[in-house]
Design a protein around this nucleic acid. Structure first.
Lengths: 127, 127
DNA sequence: ACGGGTCAACGAAAATCTTCGTAACCCATC
DNA sequence: GATGGGTTACGAAGATTTTCGTTGACCCGT
């Protein structure tokens, strides 16, 4: 159970498909990815083989056509990558990161309300 | 003025030093980095040469000992990398990203208060 | 002028990431 | 049981990233 290595861009593209579709075959992943970008079927296959070795995905090989699934939830991976970015580009300051995130893309009123609600919980406020 | 490529990990380590120290010589960057990790002087030099070609840093070669400086502020780079992460791992949802960032244990009580304050301003609350 | 120390440039090796051609395999249908 | 379409396995090439040894230039003190 070693620390999962940070997914590369190509790996992340595949993970995105698996998160959205759920467990999928190579062909299913390929169909989705090939819409946006020209790439070969065996490229996707190879990536999934490597990701399996790295532990990024799990493979169900009980049928002839193997089924691949992510081994971490999207949320877990997001946390991991955020933590990584926090260390490497934000000096560990999550305040700084949050400020930047809120400044970059304007959050809707509902978003802000949701964040406020979360702050209340985090701070353990009494109403 | 092409879109600056996302810095690699090694590049980011150097950028961190330059952001903190300001414009520096190869040796100065090397001294800082070699504290945490064993690496050669020429490794740092080569990295800075490459980063110069990529446009990540700017070089003042008017003296014999060259001075390197970042070509983007830390904030600009942070925005860029956050945007990248947002697309690639968060489906473009900054709300989601902020929530995750707040959910880590790295946000201190003061951080949360500062964010709350910012929310107040963003929502235009009257006191 | 000489020698030791510091410097940037260059090339190349090592490591990692990305892509795909080829082969081997399985199964359904002719 | 041969053929064809779809599958995984394998290896290797190409691209990028990371590392550093070597070389030649430059400077300063003797």
């Amino acid at each position: 159970m070693s620390a999962p290595t940070r997914p590369t861009d190509a790996e992340l593209a595949i993970l995105r498909v698996l998160w959205e579709r759920g467990p999928s075959t190579v062909r299913q992943v390929f169909e989705v990815l090939s819409v946006e970008k020209a790439l070969g079927y065996t490229t996707v296959l190879k990536m999934l083989q490597i990701m399996d070795e790295k532990g990024l995905v799990q493979r169900d090989a009980s049928d002839r056509v193997h089924i691949f699934a992510t081994s971490q939830t999207q949320t877990q991976t997001q946390r991991h990558m955020l933590d990584d970015l926090l260390d490497k580009a934000f000096g560990g300051s999550s305040l700084n990161l949050v400020m930047q995130a809120l400044a970059t893309r304007r959050a809707s009123r509902e978003d802000l309300a949701a964040i406020r609600k979360m702050l209340d919980q985090a701070e353990g406020r009494k109403p």
